[in-house]
Computed example of a mutant assay.
Amino acid sequence: MNRHPFRWLELTLGIVLLAAVGSWAVWHEDLLTPRQLSLSAAGVLIVLGIVGIAATLRGARPSTTSPSPAPTVTTPTVEGDSHEEAHPLP
């Protein structure tokens, strides 16, 4: 199983969507006071920072798959001038 590259665009769009929904929930539905919102945002940022530090310290995952066999190398054959289809004469 191959590790896929990180996609920054999807992360950015997800954060923007989450911010828009959070803003709507806070201001239009009165789910949180501004004080509760600031404490929640700080808590989320702290947790994300801890997760980032843990992921950095963990390092790269070792490969669990068996090594693939070496590719076979074929030597090209010398065709010479016997194939005129490849190099037609004028």
Rank of each mutant, 00 (worst) to 15 (best):
R58Y: 04
P67L: 09
R35H: 10
G22N: 14
V16C: 11
A41N: 04
L11Q: 10
G43F: 09
R3F: 00
G43K: 03
I15P: 00
G49P: 05
G49A: 12
T12A: 12
A60Y: 01
P90Y: 08
L9D: 07
A42R: 07
I50Y: 05
V47Q: 09
V78H: 13
I46T: 10
A70C: 14
I53L: 13
L37F: 08
R7C: 04
S68L: 15
W27M: 12
P71M: 03
A19H: 13
S40M: 15
T72H: 10
I46Q: 06
P62H: 03
V78M: 05
E79R: 11
E79G: 05
L39W: 03
R7L: 05
I15R: 14
A20G: 13
L48P: 00
P69I: 11
T77A: 14
F6Q: 06
L45T: 06
L45C: 07
E29H: 13
P5T: 05
V26A: 15
V44R: 07
L13N: 07
H4N: 07
A20Y: 14
P67F: 00
T72L: 13
I46G: 09
R58L: 06
E84V: 08
L89R: 15
V21I: 15
G52H: 07
P90E: 11
H28T: 13
S63L: 02
R7E: 09
W8C: 01
A55Q: 09
H87S: 09
S23Q: 15
H4G: 02
V16F: 10
P62S: 02
P62F: 02
T64N: 01
R3M: 01
R61I: 00
I53T: 05
L39M: 05
I53D: 06
V47I: 13
A20N: 09
P62I: 02
V16Y: 10
S38F: 10
S23T: 15
H4K: 11
W24V: 14
T72Y: 05
L13M: 10
A19W: 12
G43D: 07
T72S: 15
P62C: 00
A60K: 08
E29D: 09
V44L: 15
T75I: 15
S68H: 12
V73G: 04
L13S: 07
G49E: 02
L37M: 12
T77W: 01
A20F: 12
S23V: 13
P62V: 02
L11I: 09
V47G: 04
S23D: 14
L45G: 03
R35D: 03
G43L: 12
L31H: 10
S63M: 02
H4F: 11
A19N: 09
A86Q: 07
P69C: 07
T72Q: 14
I46L: 15
A42F: 06
L17W: 08
R7T: 06
W27Y: 10
T12S: 11
M1A: 09
H83L: 11
A70T: 15
G43E: 04
H83W: 08
S66F: 08
A70V: 15
M1S: 14
G52C: 12
